[in-house]
Computed example of a mutant assay.
Amino acid sequence: MEVTVLQAIGIGLVALFAYMVDFCAYAQWDRPIFTCLLVGFVLGDIPQALVLGANLELLYMGTMSIGAALPPDIYTGGILGVAFAIVTGTGIEGAITLCLPIASLALVVKQFFYTFFRGYCTHKADYYASIGNADGVAKMHILSLLMWVPMAILVGFAFYSGSATVQTILDSIPEFIMNGISVASGMIPALGFAMLAKLTVTPKTLPFLFLGFAFVSYLNVDVTGVAIFGLIIAIIAVYFTKPNQEVATVGMEEDDNEF
């Protein structure tokens, strides 16, 4: 499948749309499960794009930003991975093979913009804040979003250049660097799930966690079934533990009558 200029521009616009998610309170339209739909629309193969995007979403499910540490760029990796897989016809294998190294390489480029361009905007915003100029702070915030324009252009150019060119650039990176990036990329999902478990697992919710594990392990219930059982248990728990407003009101009236 030959890539046209209009398709490359479309992929660049999809990338720009995904990057702008930070401007809208992070509505999560940057995830592969959604950007793949736009990629499929641009390339004219929405069913295949949805299948690829769903598989990549499982791969990136545990990725998150932790402090100043950023995970591989799932926006660029997901968009280009799905796009190249559709163009070359390599399926999910091709998407996974390309998306991880592309995401890691895009992270290096993004860190460059973060360090210099956004660093400048941050210092200027601090200065405006120190003199009480709220408009200046707002302008620096909006100006910092312009860093995504060159990133989107790079995505469109990389797609137009073809997967072979991107692979050549990736092959030029020293092997020990790519190995380190691969190991780090593999640890990020586990770290993300561990942090999620730390936030959600409490003494009150721990029995439900083991109950779900028992359903899956011993009763062979799938994820949908566990979710349905969990919803039913949650509704019952909320219904039977909700305070009886009528009893509370009667008790308050009796206390008032005593006075």
Rank of each mutant, 00 (worst) to 15 (best):
L199M: 11
D222I: 00
Y19W: 13
A227C: 04
A248T: 14
V87S: 07
I11H: 02
I235R: 02
G230Q: 00
R31Y: 12
F34K: 14
T165W: 01
Q48H: 10
F159R: 01
L143W: 11
L231E: 02
V155F: 11
L206K: 04
G12K: 01
I173P: 07
M178R: 10
L146E: 01
G53V: 01
V155L: 11
P174G: 03
F34N: 13
Q7A: 07
A227M: 06
T165H: 01
S144C: 15
D45Q: 03
Q111F: 05
Y239N: 10
Y19E: 09
L37P: 01
I131G: 05
L143E: 08
Y19F: 13
L191Y: 07
I228A: 11
F41W: 09
M1N: 11
H123W: 08
T168I: 08
A54V: 10
I86T: 04
I96E: 05
S217R: 11
A237E: 05
A18V: 07
T97F: 05
F208H: 04
E246M: 14
G186T: 02
G67E: 10
S172C: 05
T205N: 04
I86M: 06
A106K: 08
L100M: 14
A8H: 08
F117K: 07
V21W: 14
V137L: 00
L211I: 06
L196C: 08
L231P: 03
P243L: 05
T165I: 01
S130M: 02
F117R: 02
G136W: 00
V216M: 15
L16V: 00
M20L: 15
D73V: 09
A234P: 03
W29D: 06
R118T: 04
Q167L: 12
Q48T: 12
W148G: 09
V51S: 04
G180H: 03
A134N: 14
P101F: 06
S161L: 14
V221W: 14
I86P: 00
K124T: 02
F210Q: 09
S185H: 12
L56R: 01
G119E: 04
F23P: 05
D135M: 12
C99Y: 05
G212W: 03
Y239S: 09
L70D: 13
V226W: 07
F208L: 06
A129G: 01
F259V: 08
Q28K: 06
F84T: 06
F229C: 12
